[in-house]
Design a binder for these strands. Structure first.
Lengths: 193, 193
DNA sequence: GTCTATATTTCGATAGAC
DNA sequence: GTCTATCGAAATATAGAC
């Protein structure tokens, strides 16, 4: 691996774990296993390196949402995506960054985060619209709102998991959301009879 | 106001805004308008001051959940609590702290956060159980799970609001959750007919 | 390209005057 | 109790050798 890549990977890791403020250039260098000169050769400083690292995290996040595009009944895809294994205690690679004060204050960095959510939310909206079209969800369903709700359950699940230092609250939150969706499903089925 | 209080208020403010790592004792002193000696007179250092400040934030959070205890139909209380005005861009006073690496790593600080959520979640569970008892929600509803789900929608709403630097995604997420609850309500009504 | 040495500033804490 | 002066360590960045 090239020094440049080692640096962005190390920075991405540390951003996810420790946040921007607590991640010093020195720690990045140590973890990457390169000298100080390499970093200032490729990047103008901590900020530029962080931007590159966030780009990497955002790309990974988008890749993970591909389940929503698969070829299966819409509600199945939704459940499957909701139930994907998630590291509740570490937090969402992208969502965590929104709560990082330095990231939030920086137009470029928060822009990358918003861009990642944009991609995922448009997939959510699409699959919900498909569920409505094939009668798996009530016709009155507002797909934009429901997409936000489901994305929020995941993001909020991470918050509760970290508060309790346990995966369980997050799993329960997700199970509760799936129950609500199933209730909506039977409602939709009843109204088409 | 006493110096001690000025210090804890300033620290609470800065913790909420900028997080633990980025909040230096000097900034706290400046904002509180006291000298350096005062801080080390009352507190052993930054950590002890932060613990005291988090205690303050946790108390404020718990106070805000009192709507759930009021005297009104359970689902009304739930909707009202969900629709309470919230500063999406600033984030939740308590939830934000779970994503702060230094807070998360500290037993005492994260314990205070978990304690605040405990109080709120038990209120959520109670009001949901009451809704089930009076037929406003289906009998099969798992109140623990639904409590986690609703708390997650709020916490996740803050995440989306900050990602987009807009209150709107949070409001939509909450509206979507209320729609799901209303669907469940009509389901419950139908099954008792 | 990659390294080490070093400069400058800020951090967190202590000392000691009043 | 509250203040200012100051310390030692770490953060961020630059200089310059190889």
């Amino acid at each position: 691996m090239r020094s440049r890549e080692k640096l962005t990977h190390a920075m991405a890791d540390l951003l996810w774990e420790d946040g921007y403020a607590a991640t010093s250039p020195k720690r990045v260098l140590t973890r990457a296993g390169v000298g100080q000169g390499s970093m200032y050769h490729y990047f103008s400083g901590k900020h530029e390196l962080a931007v590159e690292a966030i780009r990497e995290l955002a790309d990974q996040y988008v890749e993970n949402s591909s389940v929503l595009d698969e070829d299966a009944p819409p509600l199945d895809r939704i459940s499957r995506y909701l139930m994907q294994p998630r590291p509740g205690l570490r937090g969402c690679k992208v969502g965590r960054l929104t709560q990082d004060p330095q990231v939030f204050a920086d137009d470029e960095m928060i822009g990358l985060v918003a861009g990642a959510f944009d991609v995922a939310l448009s997939k959510w909206t699409k699959v919900i619209d498909e569920a409505i079209a094939c009668g798996e969800l009530p016709a009155e369903t507002n797909s934009t709102q429901l997409a936000m709700t489901l994305a929020s359950v995941l993001q909020g699940g991470y918050v509760l998991a970290r508060a309790y230092r346990s995966q369980k609250p997050m799993d329960e939150a997700i199970a509760g959301a799936i129950s609500l969706l199933n209730t909506a499903k039977s409602q939709a089925a009843a109204s088409t009879e």
